[in-house]
């Protein structure tokens, strides 16, 4: 118990971050099971009404319940981030380990691809792709974003593998006749896990940022509620100019809480994965 308290005190950033994310997730999950789905549809109430007992956060221009939209949109946005994060980090880790461990021409070419893709502002490529699709689902959005989310994980994992590769215990394993596959899975992989975890959180945050950006441009999933879509409609119908604060403030607040949570979690994990940062507290 004392140890736990000590650990929490040492990792206040990580704990706060995870708490914030958990709150947002709970808000989405519990909310989705309480709020009827039909409330988020067009014409659930009278248009552009301020908060009332029936609609706690009022309604938007087309009579959707804002609370229902935010509640149902939160898991959708998280889903995009998770799909993109999982695919991006898995692929990036594989590329990073192989590139760092095998080296040679394979390493050189994968580094070249990473360098080129990192130079290109990925929002631009995503704009070209999504503007050519006639509608995209939440899952599809996650996959598309994942295609440009693997380069940073690949680069950090590769750098880590390079330093581990020459360590004694890896040499010993090699001399003991362990196969390359064994070395990679049993010696290298466990040692990159902390870095992978930290970059996973960062990748999820970047993916959610990209998805909300694309949605705000009108290129996100249009058939399912998401935080980005709610913000898009609010901009599109001039909710700001008309001062319909109950419409645009809630999705912004949830999004901001989520980003602060992700940022603090990533920073906290970074401190664990990279002990040299600890003195900077």
């Amino acid at each position: 118990m004392r140890d736990l308290r000590h650990w929490i005190n040492n990792n206040r950033m990580l704990v706060t971050g995870i708490t914030l994310i958990t709150l947002v997730i709970l808000f989405g999950i519990i909310g989705s099971s309480v709020v009827p789905r039909a409330r988020a549809d067009v014409g659930a109430g009278r248009p552009a009404r301020p908060p009332s007992l029936e609609f706690l956060l009022g309604t938007d221009q087309q009579g959707r319940d804002v609370l229902a939209n935010v509640v149902l949109g939160t898991p959708a946005t998280l889903k995009i981030g998770l799909i993109a994060g999982l695919i991006g980090v898995t692929f990036g880790t594989i590329v990073g380990i192989i590139s760092g461990y095998v080296g040679g021409a394979l390493d050189a070419s994968s580094r070249l691809v990473v360098d080129v893709l990192l130079t290109i502002p990925n929002l631009m490529v995503l704009v070209v792709i999504t503007s050519m699709l006639s509608g995209v689902s939440v899952e599809g959005m996650g996959v598309i974003i994942a295609a440009f989310a693997w380069m940073y994980p690949a680069r950090t994992v590769r750098a880590q593998v390079l330093t581990i590769r020459e360590r004694m215990y890896v040499q010993v394993a090699r001399l003991n006749g362990m196969s390359s596959f064994g070395i990679v899975t049993r010696e290298l992989f466990p040692n990159v896990v902390p870095i992978v975890a930290a970059s996973f959180v960062g990748t999820v945050a970047a993916a959610i940022l990209a998805s909300i950006g694309l949605s705000a441009l009108g290129l996100g999933p249009q058939n399912e509620a998401s935080l980005g879509l709610t913000i898009y409609w609010a901009i599109f119908y001039g909710a700001l100019i008309r001062q319909l604060w109950w419409w645009f403030i809630p999705p912004i607040v949830i999004t901001i809480l989520l980003f602060i949570g992700l940022f603090m979690t990533a920073a906290g994990l970074d401190r664990i994965a990279n002990p040299r940062l600890r003195t900077n507290a």
């Binding site: 700001l240 100019i241 604060w245 645009f248 912004i252 602060i260 603090m264 920073a267």
Partner: peptide, 23 residues
């Protein structure tokens, strides 16, 4: 500073417009 760097700047922008241009 941490909060500011974590918030997407365009969301910050939306809040700024609301406060300083409309309210």
């Amino acid at each position: 500073l941490m909060t500011l760097s974590a918030i997407p700047y365009y969301l910050l922008g939306l809040l700024l417009v609301y406060v300083f241009a409309l309210v």
